[in-house]
Amino acid sequence: MKIPYFPGCTLKATAKSFEVSGIAVGKELGIEFVEMPRWNCCGTVYSLATDDLMHQLAPVRNLAVVESDMEENRVVSFCSMCYNTLRQANNLVINDPEKLKTINEFMDTEKDYRGGVEPLHLLQVLGEVGTKEMEKRVKKPLTGLKLVPYYGCTLVRPEDVSIDDPRDPSIMEEIMKAMGADIIDIEYKTECCGSYQTITNRDAVVERTRKIIESAREAGGDVIILSCPLCDFNLEDRQREVREKYHGFIEMPVLYFTQLMALAMGLEDKAGFEGNQIDPRPLLEERGLLEG
């Protein structure tokens, strides 16, 4: 399967391990992600104002490029925020031809967007492959590794863009079970990490990080897995501040789910563990999943 791929800024900057591992896993499963010939930042957060079309230009421009340059009708992003923004913007213009017309007046180097592209998230594309197919590729099952899936907001809210049951999604669980891992459910699974408040309300985000990691720890989890580079920054990088504030706080590795898929499929050179703030390698070695 070939599918147009929208990387988004952060996968090319601070979340390279997500891109590298995701592309490797896709290849193993017979999916070729074809990077768009040109693309711009999706905007990362969807504008909720009825009269603010300027902030819809970025996502729609990308969709127009998929439609006109690539002549395709789907596009996949790995980043949850990109997925959410592209999807919400797409819904907006499909349901409001007047707004689409106005937006198209700003598409001077693209053809007018006609609403013919479906934005998808990586998890949905993997879901199409199916867990049966995935199981066949597992070379090193993640036996005994207790994973805590964290969806955050943008994969499941608002409801009309949710990739799964918005209150109790399970798509990540199923994929990771196919990799041989154990799954731990926590109540914070679909709760916000604080998002961009990490700049303006850092303490609040540090507090949320503590709650989420502690609840994962209490439930017996080893590793948090997720698919959003901003969740990752908040849950992983901000743990340092939690540790400085709270004595006795024990750090927990936070990984993109594709990093562990890569490991399970015998592609550990593509897992990019060395780039993680909290090094997961000691834990993985201890569990016999990595050579020391």
């Binding site: 988004g8 800024c9 952060t10 900057a13 601070t14 979340a15 930042c41 905007g43 990362t44 957060v45 504008s47 902030h55 980043c79 925020m81 998002s195 961009y196 408040q197 990490t198 700049i199 303006t200 580079p229 901003l230 920054f233 990088d237």
Partner: peptide, 22 residues
């Protein structure tokens, strides 16, 4: 007012989001 050292560590996604909303 965002310290330069802080921006060094922040992912683009955080900066773009905060600037769009704030």
């Amino acid at each position: 007012s965002i310290a330069e050292e802080e921006i060094e560590d922040l992912p683009p996604i955080a900066l773009v989001a905060a600037m769009r909303k704030l």
